[in-house]
Design a protein around this nucleic acid. Sequence first.
DNA 1: TAGTGGTCTAGACCACTAT
DNA 2: TAGTGGTCTAGACCACTAA
Lengths: 263, 263
Amino acid sequence: MSSVPTNLLNNGAPAGAAGTSSPGTSPTFSPLYQQIKALITQSLQSGEWKPGELIPSEVELANRFKVSQGTVRKAIDELAAENLVVRRQGKGTFVATHHEARAQFRFLRLMPDAGDPHSADNKILDVKRLRAPAEVARQLDMKSGDSVIFIKRVQSFDGAPTIVEELWLPGLIFKGLTAERLIEYKGPMYGLFETEFGTRMIRATERIRAVAADAATAELLGVPAGAPLLSVERVSFTYGDKPVEVRRGLYLTDSHHYQNELS
Amino acid sequence: MSSVPTNLLNNGAPAGAAGTSSPGTSPTFSPLYQQIKALITQSLQSGEWKPGELIPSEVELANRFKVSQGTVRKAIDELAAENLVVRRQGKGTFVATHHEARAQFRFLRLMPDAGDPHSADNKILDVKRLRAPAEVARQLDMKSGDSVIFIKRVQSFDGAPTIVEELWLPGLIFKGLTAERLIEYKGPMYGLFETEFGTRMIRATERIRAVAADAATAELLGVPAGAPLLSVERVSFTYGDKPVEVRRGLYLTDSHHYQNELS
DNA sequence: TAGTGGTCTAGACCACTAT
DNA sequence: TAGTGGTCTAGACCACTAA
């Protein structure tokens, strides 16, 4: 069952050996802790340990992989830095989840100009299955015309509609996602994706521009057509850098701003 | 001269002692490596090691601070993660500098929609000394009316004017900054700040919005008044989280976008 | 009290760079 | 060849949590 997996680590065959035996064509040895990190990531990806759950202790993992605790520690350090995992002193290491206040703000950068961030009121306008447009297919690494789920929604803060957003999700992964499910679900959408569809968003890239509001969007946001809006186009990735969401948002930035840290 | 500084480390007085002697009012002990990190940061800040220079080796620092190499290592690991320092295997650890391609793109997120990033053509429109407006003074942690240097410039990519930017810098720190100096200087502005004024930008926060172009800016960018522009308001910080620059940019995002990574 | 992650040490060996 | 950062180990002790 959960027995020790067959480890293929180059523990007894240090990197130097590669240079001696087959210089130039060395099969890219990597440090032990990187291999451990990859093995742990595999277990996360396969669902052996689910979001929110406790993973085995450092000592146990060290025994399992036949390495020292320090090596496991360095592997987990990097996973924690990448937000795949959360350490808690005295308790253990947990698989990161979107069902936490912490994780929310990593993926919602729109902040009120004054006051504390608030939770959004979410209104689903449309959910349907359709064939992926060429551009979306390209971004999702699918073939043009493959089945995708399309969602359109409006988010309001303090009663004021602020974000109009369209989402495209791979139809195969999110099969069975319905408007009812989205509407009745409380909490962050990424939380639903994670618990209902086993797909956890790890990171995302965004392209931001200023655009003029089209008539339909303007009406939804209660602004004149042509008003300047922030266009945020996001591609989200899960384990293995696999793209699993395209999101195009139009943000009204009259009393909100997109907050970014350059560090 | 460069003798061993007086170390005030709680090496022999572990954190547990605080709980025993004065519980509740413990004077916040910190781990050794954090103290080492703070000491190294002080040396960076004071200019003991200048941008681009080699800092002492891990072994030497370990001897100087009377700790193990591993502890120094962990301190430097964090400094490297914060981009204050760059490690190079076999050579040593160097103080980070803005005179590198690497550092440029951390602070310039506007990318062409297609093609490689390019270097900007920089046109200085105005440089003058004035009294800080209230809002700028607040952001720079100065008193309203204190002297600041004001700069206005236009940046073009491939000959197309794309960014109109206004900067405010504390007059005391940047005394002697003239239009001539800015114009004749080749390379990134932060590089000039670092070498000529000893002030290195460490991190920055940005507030991004969509706004309509005013008449003057529209003319500079060659767009109609009212065209949507990306407004980027930046506050940059140097060592000790001290704000030393306010920058308000208006970006034309017709063929460029602001690129961001959520991770 | 037992188990967890967090800190610190000391030492070994490796890979890379320069001389 | 010497010196640097990079990896790995083994062991000690600490702080925190929960039973």
